[in-house]
């Protein structure tokens, strides 16, 4: 009698618990369905049409948008540019964040102040960031060219082709403090004895960093690479806001060199009213990002050391 009742009690408790679980996570499930899955599915349908966003006169055109995309030199060029930007910006971001973290990971007075200073730019809103750097990089009135002139380097037009690309990289690097904080937290988990022991053994500082510190914090570095790649691929606001233009947000005046893939998508949607074609671009990009993420994840087996594996060594 008693175990029977207990079992029934347990089952109804299980049901209660399961129902409560779904009740608690329902905001996300509903939100994900309506605000992530639905828009993506909708974009997939629109990508098979010639919808222009205005009139309701559209028709199914099958895969024609996709076929056009592979022959679209501008789109392909912007994708290549985006990949190049990612390949340059992410290693610089990760290395810079790691470098700053290593610098700050010692017992020096005032380290907290420096940490605040380096972390600060990463919370500055992108609009303010763009305004600040346009003031610095301004060809005539900017401080950078004024300083360069002191060493007789003529005025450089930073915000137009071909230099706009470097301006974008500089803007990106200024915000590397977020990554630095993650690396710093990881570094503080590395046992000091390990590094000291190696140093006493005569290992050079570079050697210690390369063969002990970096492998120890490789999960944090890996996390930085993954989030950095995804952030870099989807970048759109920075090129729009850095463009020297009278009409902010107008795609037409974004320099060729910072005309990245999402800028191209934005242009197809809102300047050319080609919603169908733009949706096809979004989906191709979605698949490209998925592919890159998988490749990065796979590569992690070669160079990321998780605590569990190294346990045996220690």
């Amino acid at each position: 009698m008693a175990p029977e009742r207990a079992r029934r009690g347990r089952r109804s408790w299980k049901r209660y618990s399961s129902r409560t679980f779904y009740l608690f996570v329902s905001p996300w499930i509903i939100g994900f369905t309506l605000l992530t899955a639905l828009p993506l599915g909708y974009a997939l349908l629109v990508s098979l049409t010639n919808f222009n966003g205005r009139t309701d006169r559209w028709r199914w055109i099958g895969l024609r948008n996709y076929r056009e995309l592979f022959g679209d030199a501008d789109a392909v060029a912007s994708l290549v540019r985006t990949l190049a930007y990612t390949a340059i910006a992410v290693p610089l971001m990760v290395a810079g964040g790691l470098g700053l973290a290593v610098l700050l990971n010692r017992r020096l007075k005032g380290v907290g102040l420096f940490r605040t200073i380096f972390f600060l730019p990463s919370v500055v809103p992108v609009v303010a960031m763009a305004i600040m750097w346009k003031l610095i990089l301004n060809r005539d009135a900017g401080i950078l060219n004024a300083l360069l002139e002191k060493v007789s380097i003529g005025p450089i037009a930073w915000l137009v082709d071909p230099n706009a690309f470097y301006a974008l990289i500089i803007l990106t690097l200024w915000g590397l403090g977020g990554g630095m904080v993650i690396m710093l937290a990881a570094l503080q988990g590395v046992p000091a004895e390990l590094e000291e022991a190696a140093a006493v053994d005569g290992a050079s500082r570079w050697h210690v960093l390369r063969h002990i510190t970096v492998p120890m914090i490789s999960p944090a570095i890996f996390f930085q690479v993954v989030t950095g790649v995804i952030a870099a691929l989807q970048i759109i606001i920075q090129p729009l806001l850095l463009a020297e233009t009278n009409q902010v947000g107008s795609v037409a005046q974004v320099p060729q060199n910072t005309h990245l893939f999402m800028v191209q998508v934005y242009q197809e949607f809102f300047a050319n009213n080609r919603y169908g074609y733009g949706s096809a671009m979004l989906w191709v990009f979605f698949l490209v990002i998925l592919l890159i993420t998988v490749v990065v994840q796979r590569s992690s087996r070669l160079w990321v050391h998780y605590e569990v594996d190294s346990e045996a060594d220690r």
Partner: peptide
């Protein structure tokens, strides 16, 4: 995995909807 999904991908179709 949705943490890894670029928000800009869903933002434009969301706008259209």
């Amino acid at each position: 995995s949705t943490m890894m999904l670029p928000q800009i991908l869903t933002l434009i179709p969301t706008y259209v909807l």
